[in-house]
């Protein structure tokens, strides 16, 4: 029993028996997924297999994007049930940040983008300009963007390169100190060099943040994740250490997919 408790404490995300319907369409079937704290887990699978749906149900953004979403089962983030009645979605999303396929910085300055979430969630006390500058520098430094933009923080974020925009989209999550960052194919709009830079960054964030990343890119899953989970038709097929899953998949479907036989 004690062991189970300790084990549960190490989990940042714990998905148990989750089924999800969009209206009458069932997108997820009894999905289980355990994500260890501070680890990077890749979700792979062909289009429409439910990996984005699973990702989006962790911070419950599904409910905003499409109405008529029904979820059964349980999803715990840091031992807290996110599907509970009293969960405030805004609180949850502060703790569980998200990065999208296409970089979506707000049409504000770089500085205001970084401070956006911070300003939403600060309670009461005002920050001095210097304190805010500190927050901006720390966040941008963490995503390896500080040197590039430090002289031009008032520049419109939407005019940055796509790579810089995507890094900024990660940076703006950091000031509110999320424990989990969800990434939905974060490099699919980027060129190979930018993809590599992003992967390096994601790897750097390991340990400080728990990262769940959806990717279509097998090589990316291999390079930039510690564990990989393979989904097919709304079901979790296999989940294990990345190296193991790619070298010795237990399930024939997994083997077929990673060898490129479908998807």
């Amino acid at each position: 029993m004690a062991d189970a408790t300790t084990a549960a404490k190490d989990l940042a995300i714990d998905v148990r028996g989750v089924s999800l319907w969009y209206g009458t369409f069932q997108a997820l079937y009894e999905v289980n997924l355990e994500v260890k704290r501070g680890s990077i887990t890749a979700l792979i699978g062909p289009s429409g297999c439910g990996k984005s749906t699973l990702l989006r149900s962790v911070n419950r953004i599904n409910e905003r994007l499409g109405s008529y979403v029904r979820t059964t089962g349980s999803i715990h983030v840091l031992q807290h049930d996110v599907l509970a009645e009293d969960v405030e979605p805004a609180r949850l999303r502060k703790e569980v940040g998200m990065v999208f396929q296409r970089p979506n910085p707000l049409p504000l300055s770089v500085r205001d983008n970084v401070l956006f979430a911070h300003k939403l969630h600060r309670t009461g006390q005002r920050y001095t300009r210097a304190q805010e500058d500190g927050i901006v520098e720390e966040a941008l430094s963490t995503v390896l963007l500080w040197d590039e933009v430090k002289d031009d923080l008032d520049r419109k974020a939407t005019t940055l390169s796509l790579e810089a925009q995507q890094k900024l989209c990660i940076a703006r999550l950091l000031p509110v100190k999320p424990s989990v960052i969800l990434m939905d194919e974060p490099t699919s709009a980027l060129d190979p060099a930018a993809t590599e830079a992003l992967e390096e960054l994601i790897w750097e964030l390991r340990g400080d943040y728990t990262i769940l990343i959806v990717t279509h890119n097998m090589a990316q899953a291999r390079r930039a994740s510690e564990e990989t989970a393979f989904m097919l038709l709304g079901r979790m097929v296999e989940h294990g250490p990345t190296e193991e899953l790619f070298l010795r998949p237990h399930d024939q479907q997994t083997a077929d997919y990673i060898e490129g036989r479908y998807g």
């Binding site: 953004i61 994007l65 502060k94």
Partner: peptide
């Protein structure tokens, strides 16, 4: 106003009103 901006705001924990007012 592109939907991406709204998604970005919601995902940072902004309420609908904060999203409307600020973005």
């Amino acid at each position: 106003v592109p939907k991406a901006f709204r998604e970005a705001c919601w995902n940072m924990g902004a309420t609908r009103w904060q999203t409307i007012w600020k973005v």
